[in-house]
Simulated scan of single mutants.
Amino acid sequence: MRVRKKTMKKNNIELVNYFLIGISVAMSAISYPFLPDSIPIHWNYNGVVDEYGSKLIVLSVIPIGIFLLYLLLRYVPRIDPRKKNYERFSRTYSWFRVSILMILVVLQGVTILVSFGLTLNMGMIIQIGLGALFIFLGNLMPKIQPTYFVGIRTPWTLANDKVWHRTHQLAGKVWVICGFLMIPLALIPVGFIQFAVLIVLIVVMVLVPTIYSYYIYKKN
């Protein structure tokens, strides 16, 4: 009974992925006839569009890219030498995949809105979106089991399961804190400072768990 319940929950989460892919395709198909031939594809750190691309290519590539990423994330566990560990955090991994697809679909929607002429601060939106994503992923981090494709993969976490778990417990806290900092700091009006703050926080999120994993490994 428990196995059946677990399978149903997993299938429900999978339906969320299908829904997100469908939304991505629908947004491109519905907006295509109404958009100009060239639409924004890149913004500088001041949030100003500095590069345009063909709407046919952009609106085709984004849904295809999201679908290919979905396939990659779904089937990569099959080639992982530690694939059995995915079963130990299957629900967490499912939500991890949903969160990645969701942020991409949101960014696609924002890009389409800007293409219609709506004035939006892209830097602020990206930073707030990333902040929310990192808060969510930070809460998932302690549940991730040792694998070669998901998580904080340093030589020291991969060499020792105890180091892996302790590193991910710390990383989860660091990611949540940095995620919460990103959201209010996204309101900084100066584009360059806003961009610099984002980069600094991401560096902290990478370096702290990496250095800690080495420290714990040496300590043991």
Rank of each mutant, 00 (worst) to 15 (best):
R4N: 12
R4T: 10
K6V: 10
M8K: 13
M8I: 11
K9Y: 12
N11G: 02
I13T: 10
I13V: 14
E14F: 15
F19R: 01
I21R: 01
I21Q: 00
A26L: 15
Y32N: 03
P33I: 06
F34Q: 09
L35I: 09
D37A: 13
I41V: 15
N44A: 07
N46L: 13
G47K: 04
D50L: 09
E51I: 02
S54L: 08
L56D: 12
I62T: 11
G65N: 09
I66Y: 00
L72N: 03
L73D: 02
V76T: 13
P77S: 04
N85H: 06
Y86F: 14
Y86V: 05
S90I: 12
W95A: 04
W95C: 09
V98G: 08
S99K: 03
L101G: 01
M102E: 07
M102I: 02
I103K: 03
I103M: 11
L113I: 10
L113C: 09
G117H: 08
G117V: 06
L118Y: 14
N121F: 01
M124P: 01
I128G: 07
G129I: 06
G131L: 08
A132V: 14
L133E: 00
F134Q: 03
F134D: 02
G138S: 07
N139L: 07
N139C: 07
L140R: 01
P142T: 04
K143E: 14
Q145E: 15
T147Y: 10
T147G: 06
Y148W: 13
Y148P: 00
F149M: 12
F149R: 10
V150D: 04
V150Q: 07
P155K: 11
A159L: 02
N160P: 10
V163I: 08
W164N: 01
W164F: 10
R166H: 11
R166S: 12
T167A: 07
H168Y: 06
L170N: 06
A171H: 02
V174W: 00
V176F: 12
V176T: 10
G179Q: 09
F180R: 02
L181M: 14
M182T: 07
M182I: 08
A186K: 02
I193G: 00
A196F: 13
A196D: 06
L198I: 00
L201Q: 04
I202A: 15
V203N: 03
V206R: 11
V208L: 14
T210A: 15
T210M: 13
Y212I: 02
Y212Q: 03
S213A: 10
I216E: 15
K219P: 02
